[in-house]
Nucleic acid binder design. Structure first.
Length: 466
DNA sequence: TTTTGAGTTGTTCGA
DNA sequence: GTCGAACAACTCAAA
């Protein structure tokens, strides 16, 4: 009996290792079509930053190379997946399409539409985990509801059994006759010459190397160092996890839970699952406050405050360093994200949705669920949000997490010669020190656009609706 | 149904 | 400089 052809529709699971949907397709031994669809709604210079397009191009080339090493190749098509996936299925005579379940409102709507059309044409769709460690709906409280608080979620998460990781298939038999467009490049995606110089290399090969290096060299001190802005103490795996070039499950299973650093990192992976569960359950929170009490706050919209923030000229060195890092690398240190988000929401009272969209577009790891969870936490509007009175002080945070000023001096070079003592509040420098450092506040570097103490009082009143 | 303990990431003030 | 309390009460989850 001839085996039916199966399509594996890759989206943000761009790897061969520990890929349940891929294994479901290859394990039968029949013909397989590994498909990636360039959806102009997502993959365009208008919606994705050059850093993200660069990572995606790298990842697709690496995936193709991995498939070729196994006797296959990647088939790329351009267009709306609602048209393209059923068309390819008809073209190759597919009996089934395998995919990894996604959690965003956009992906869920798209996948439901594609599923309807495929099933109407007699093509089965099987959805697998792979984007999260545990898919939405699998971690619930006793009455079956979705957790709104992280700690009980994590306890329930940890009680469930975990399947072992599945190795990459040994061979992938792709029919020779299936045509493919050329693999996209940075140039073909319209981002030539605009990719930030510090953008990381994408793809499973680079991602696996980063994971191994992190586990060997940094994970044991992750707990103590991940908040230090000037140290390489974080995993740098966020983009790899977002594009699925690292399997979160495989990464989790490589951790040694007895080491505090590993345990902290496991917690971050579980946060990722938590926010995935929350968004899948309450898709409306992508654009609306999770907390209904806080849905009509009079946030500021676009304007000079937002512009100063995103352009890195607020006059607060830690904030400006963070925003400039984002522009230069398409990435920002996690602690800097928190401080920066707090500043936009609490000091400038600018709508968290503007910050969310800005991060989503520019972060190479921009992930709807995690990004939304982080922003709603910072704004105080989300699940398990920080208390309204917790307002980060940008000077204190700088002194605490960038004590030697390595981070600020790197990204805000005009302050490089300012002594540690004044670096995080340069407006307080005595004139002689400023002269020595070659900085005139208000000329070489902006004066602070708000007074933090005043802004803090204003934020408290804002949340009290005074 | 009721009760109870707990809740990512902080700051400021006053002793 | 260090330390504890206050900052509000509320919701969530589980017993």
């Amino acid at each position: 009996m001839a085996l039916g052809t199966r399509i594996v529709w890759f989206r943000r699971d761009l790897r061969l290792d520990d890929h349940p949907a891929l294994r479901a397709a290859t394990d039968g031994g029949g013909p397989v079509v590994p498909l990636f669809v360039l959806d102009p709604r997502l993959v365009g210079a208008g919606t994705m930053s050059p850093a993200r397009l660069s990572y995606l191009a790298d990842a697709l080339h690496d995936l193709d190379a991995g498939l070729r090493a196994r006797g296959g190749r990647l088939v790329v098509r351009r267009g709306d997946p609602r048209e393209v996936v059923p068309a390819v299925a008809a073209e190759v005579g597919a009996t089934a399409v395998s995919l990894s379940r996604d959690v965003t409102p956009f992906a869920q709507g798209r996948d439901a539409a594609v599923r309807d059309r495929l099933e109407a044409a007699g093509v089965a769709v099987d959805a697998h985990p792979g984007i999260l460690i545990r898919d939405p709906g699998t971690v619930t409280s006793a009455d079956g509801s979705t957790y709104r608080v992280y700690s009980p979620f994590r306890r329930a998460w940890a009680r469930l059994p975990l399947e072992p990781a599945a190795p990459a298939p040994g061979s992938v038999a792709v029919p020779a006759a299936v045509p493919s467009e050329d693999l996209p490049t940075v140039a073909s995606l319209g981002a030539a010459g605009r990719v930030p110089s510090g953008t990381i290399r994408g793809g499973e090969t680079a991602a696996q190397a980063r994971l191994t290096r992190f586990l060997d060299e940094a994970a044991h001190r992750y707990h103590d160092q991940r908040d230090l802005l000037g140290e390489p103490g974080t995993s740098r795996l966020s983009a790899d996890l977002h594009y699925g070039t690292v399997s979160p499950r495989a990464a989790y299973l490589r951790l040694d839970q007895d080491l505090p650093g590993h345990e902290s990192f496991a917690g971050e992976l579980i946060w990722r699952d938590f926010y995935g569960h929350v968004l899948a359950r309450w898709p409306g929170i992508r654009d609306t406050e999770f907390n209904p009490e806080l849905r009509d706050l009079p946030w500021r919209g676009e304007g000079p405050e937002f512009d100063a923030w995103r352009e890195g000229r607020t006059g607060y060195p830690i904030i400006d360093a963070a925003q400039r890092q984002l522009r230069q690398e398409g990435w920002m240190h996690n602690r800097a994200r928190m401080v920066s988000a707090s500043f936009l929401c609490k000091d400038l009272l600018v709508d968290w949705r503007l910050g969310q969209d800005h991060f989503l577009r520019h972060l190479v790891d921009g992930d709807v669920a995690s990004n939304n969870g982080g922003w709603q936490w910072a704004a105080g509007t989300g699940t398990d949000a920080q208390p309204y009175f917790r307002i980060f002080n940008p000077v204190t945070q700088g002194e605490k997490f960038d004590p030697q000023g390595r981070y600020v001096r790197h990204y805000v070079p005009e302050l490089a010669a300012v002594p540690d003592r004044w670096l995080h509040h340069p407006w307080d420098m005595p004139a002689a020190v400023a002269r020595e450092a070659g900085v005139t506040i208000g000329e070489d570097y902006p004066a602070p656009i708000v007074d933090h103490a005043e802004a803090r009082r204003a934020a408290l009143a804002f949340f009290r609706r005074e």
